[in-house]
Simulated assay, not measured.
Amino acid sequence: MTALTWVLLAFAVIGLLFGLWQWTARRRTVQRLDNMLEQSISSGFTEEHFDETELSALETKFARFLRGSAHTQKTMKTEQEAVKTLISDISHQTRTPIANLLVYASLLTESDLSPRQREQVQALLTQGEKLSFLIQTLVKASRLETGIVVPTPTLGPVAPLLEATVEQERPAAEKKKITLQNLPFVGDASFDPRWTSEALGNVVNNAVKYTPAGGRVTVSAQMLETFCRVDVTDTGPGIPEEEQGGIFNRFYRGTLTHSAEGLGLGLYLAREILSLQGGYIKVSSKPGNGSTFSLYLPRALNRI
């Protein structure tokens, strides 16, 4: 063998050894990172190496991050417990006073009152009912947010949900001479009947509330590839584009709806309920052309 051949062979051996060393080092690093992640998942991660290497510095940062995450998780749990206690206290402490307020206001309406007094008592009764509804809605929203109550979706027909909601809102629609229509539909979706009825009821109630007398509200549904979409279409004043991003927030009231009674919680609650079931809600609207609120219900049970 010539000298050149020996040189080339030596370089090949050195390259092979260097590659093997790099592969071993990478594997050792990956194994160490994998162990760190496994320990973090089981909440048992502790620093084991204290040197000047980059991996040791990474381990230090990782440990600091996990300690911070653990502290954050503990703080969130404490705050959730505090919220649960607050919700329970509000619900318990206000139930009796509000009930008494409504009873005595109702009794006053049966008394011999002047027109002015009767008007004042009716205002008292209306505000008492509004306060009761507000507290009930806040309690529902807070229980959903903190996980005290979790919707349990099941596969079932959508038609009964639509029919029951429409019948529930029909008296309010008839009072305003609004045509409330439910289009026939056949199909199944994944949803919690009780909570989804609450979400859809809030949307239909809003449509009736904000649609002028003599208008129309239509409830319909159609099957998409992965969702069943329930549409609530009205002939109300519509929603300006710049306001559509905020209407699902707590207590939001649009500029075109301030004159109507409302708390600004119905759409927020509907969004929370649908989100917890793997669905969502969106709106399509233009001022003067009414609105369509679309509730998306998964067609299959969420296995996540």
Rank of each mutant, 00 (worst) to 15 (best):
C228F: 02
L301M: 06
V139R: 09
V203D: 14
I90C: 05
L9F: 06
K175W: 09
I98Y: 00
E47L: 13
T292E: 11
A25C: 01
L155I: 11
L55G: 05
T2V: 04
V219L: 15
K175I: 03
A99W: 01
R26D: 14
L276Y: 00
I281R: 08
F293S: 07
G15C: 08
T218N: 07
V166K: 10
S88C: 00
S91M: 06
K286H: 11
F133K: 15
V139P: 04
I98K: 03
G254P: 09
Q73P: 00
Q136T: 05
K209N: 15
H49K: 08
T235H: 04
V232I: 11
G245R: 04
F227G: 01
T179H: 10
L20R: 11
V166Q: 12
L267Y: 07
T179V: 06
A159L: 03
K282N: 14
E81H: 11
F50Y: 12
L180G: 07
K209P: 00
S106M: 07
G215Q: 12
Y104K: 03
I273N: 10
S132T: 02
F248P: 09
Q122M: 09
S197M: 10
T165L: 07
I135T: 09
G187R: 12
R143E: 15
P287I: 05
Q277N: 03
I281T: 10
L102A: 02
S42V: 02
E110N: 08
T165V: 14
Y252T: 05
S284F: 01
V30N: 13
H49L: 09
G288L: 09
T152P: 04
I148H: 13
S69E: 15
I273P: 08
L108A: 06
I273E: 13
T94N: 09
W21Y: 14
I247G: 12
R143H: 10
G156I: 11
L269M: 10
Q277E: 13
L200Q: 13
A99R: 08
F191G: 03
V217R: 12
E47R: 15
Y210K: 04
A221R: 05
Q222Y: 12
L224V: 00
T152M: 14
S56I: 02
G201L: 08
Q136M: 02
D234N: 15
H92M: 04
G262I: 01
R229G: 00
A260C: 05
T46N: 09
T211I: 07
G19D: 08
S142F: 08
Y210S: 03
G279N: 10
R303N: 12
A199S: 08
T29L: 15
A82M: 09
R27A: 03
V230I: 15
N100C: 01
G68H: 14
A82Y: 03
L4Y: 11
F11N: 12
R216N: 11
G147Q: 03
A82D: 11
A99Y: 03
Q120N: 06
A70G: 06
A57C: 01
Q22P: 00
M36P: 02
N206Q: 07
A63T: 07
